[in-house]
Design a binder for these strands. Structure first.
Lengths: 352, 352
DNA sequence: ATCGTCATAGCAAGCGCTTTCTATCGCTGA
DNA sequence: TCAGCGATAGAAAGCGCTTGCTATGACGAT
């Protein structure tokens, strides 16, 4: 049999109510009593029954963090940062800790909704949703409805690295300026003199893909390079190395004379590098390559990757603090986080 | 106000008990009644109160997965695999889903214990613990005690990628054969003709570090290369790229004529490559480099990394199924998973 | 016709905790 | 001296769900 509050109370010769109050520290308890109770807790090795507590108090200490792919450092870094921010915010008092957990949706909209329901079921204290949103209106509607319900039930909802949602269900949104970052990246390439620039995009249905591609096209258009050629030099894929490899081969087939490849993210860029190298092209001498995100491995790539640095760690921490209610939401509820262009060795002027 | 079981019961004109039974599907209910109930659930958009359910049933649908570092693909891959294995095992029936969540300990023993307590508090159905164990006997004792308590409380405990623990608290253990893998890696280098082999180890206090180092030394000793030189060519660090970089510089300073570097894992190997390259040494022409784990990026490194492939995904899936009770534990409760030597471009015979 | 049996459904007692309201005690101020 | 008050502690009523036990019919068997 497990130890209950009542057991502790009996041993400390106080009422269960008093034990509860000592544990929660939200009611005056005489120092001597408190000590007696804490000793009993210790001696009996008592562990609070979370479900019972959550039921009675109508709140829980669970905080969910939703990510698309836990094996991808992009999400891992944000989730880890958020999780430690949430842990650190704990008061240190016994029972004050939150259980920050990350849930892996695998990029599936259904699983996203399922996890949200599961968290709703647990009456989670807060939910941090990361990952590029889907463009699909149905899913947006379903997600909005779900988040609204969560919000109504008292769960604090924070969006991190994802565009704002319609309605006011969400406590705060931390959005990345994907479009702006992509634009400056392509501008960098243009300023080096590149004109035939291939673009390896992510999955069509994700807002991140669209935003980054839009930024790229903004720059191209501004340089007078719009037109049908733009579509021909864009290949969609997934956010994986393999996809980057395949797409780059396709790009090469379509336009053997391209001088630069912009990838949807760093992982994809790695695949692009592999494909180019395999085709006998040197980077950056023959073809320049650029990524996005500035994941840890990018600086170690050979050659080191030119990319746009997204402050993933900082964003995660902010999201975590927002979820805890430790920070006040930005005005308007939305904060746009800019990326920083990191010019490294994978980009250079095209060959004369 | 949120919708309760009673509300659903009222709308379906049945008793709360019947609604509960329909939802849990563990008691005969007439088809017509069931349908009426399900319709009411749908119409009212009812979501089960998890804590209440867990309290009454004395079980919860939470499954925790502990990892050292969520931003490290090594753990991300295992955790993701375990999580989806757990999700897929769900019956599909409403209410049958488990909430598989991953908790990031950051490698801290205290946080490990804290998370375990938090999960114990939630009366988690199962816990999967990954990550190299600490060598520290105190921590082992504390951890064993905690896991025993969890096991006693009905939580299924599974160890994944970590050595077995004393006692029988643990339902199943999936251990990696780090020692054997490391031995074959070093044997590979020896067979190429290398004799002055540097070793960049992980943190001293981790069993993984020790096991891999032991394997390396097994091979060295077998080749008659033991002795004090072995210590001089070993540098401890952390499992990070930066640590690999620093350690390799140190190694180079100690022994400029070394012909090969074995790293504690792939990430460290990347740092080692950077340091070697910076020192003007070419890989593998001047110095060979080898890693461990075979993380996804290793095949893309330039040159592609010779390493020992650990079936992280498979291990995660097995751990997840074991945690769900979907698989029977291996005989003796312990299964040792071998690594596979992947010989790639970063190793070659030393220069004559 | 009578009774056991099977299939369903309801009753009601908790599960272990939180929290409101009430009780007690030792003081202070008139 | 005594009402009044602040500081503590306890009693008890749930929180929303599960489940053992009981109740009710409908049937087939005797």
């Amino acid at each position: 049999m497990t130890v209950t509050l009542a057991d502790v109370a009996a041993r400390a010769r106080v009422s269960p109510a008093t034990v509860s109050r000592v544990l929660n520290g939200n009611y005056p308890v005489a120092a001597s009593t408190r000590e007696r109770v804490l000793r009993a807790v210790d001696e009996l090795d008592y562990v609070l029954n979370g479900p019972a507590s959550a039921l009675a108090a109508a709140t829980s200490d669970l905080v969910g963090i939703l990510v698309n792919d836990i094996a991808d450092p992009f999400f891992g870094i944000m989730a880890g940062a958020a999780q430690s921010a949430i842990g650190d915010t704990g008061t240190g008092r016994a029972g004050g800790e939150k259980l920050a957990v990350v849930c892996n949706t695998g990029g599936s909209p259904e699983r996203e909704l399922t996890y949200l329901t599961l968290l709703q079921r647990q009456r989670a204290a807060a939910v941090v949703v990361t990952g590029g949103a889907l463009v699909d209106p149905d899913h947006i509607a379903a997600l909005t409805a779900k988040l609204t319900k969560l919000g109504d039930a008292g769960t604090r909802v924070v969006l991190c690295g994802r565009p704002p949602m319609p309605g006011d269900a969400v406590a705060a949104t931390l959005a990345f300026d994907n479009r702006g970052g992509a634009r400056s990246l392509t501008e960098h390439l243009l300023s080096l003199g590149h004109r035939r620039i291939g673009y390896v995009a992510g999955p069509v249905e994700r807002s991140t893909t669209r935003d980054r591609l839009d930024g790229h096209r903004d720059a191209m258009t501004a340089a007078g390079l719009d037109g049908p050629g733009l579509d021909r030099l864009t290949v969609y894929g997934r956010y994986t190395r393999a996809s980057g490899y395949d797409a780059t081969r396709e790009l090469l087939a379509r336009e053997p004379s391209l001088t630069a490849v912009v990838a949807a993210n760093d992982t994809v860029a790695l695949g692009a590098c592999a494909a180019l190298r395999e085709a006998g092209l040197r980077i950056p001498d023959d073809v320049s390559v650029a990524g996005f995100d500035d994941l840890p491995f990018s600086v170690d790539a050979v050659p080191s990757l030119t990319t746009v640095r997204l402050p993933l760690h900082e964003a995660g921490v902010r999201a975590g603090r927002l979820a805890m209610g430790a920070d006040t939401p930005p005005p308007g509820g939305v904060s746009t986080i800019r990326g920083e262009l990191m010019v490294r060795a994978s980009t250079a002027p095209p060959r004369a």
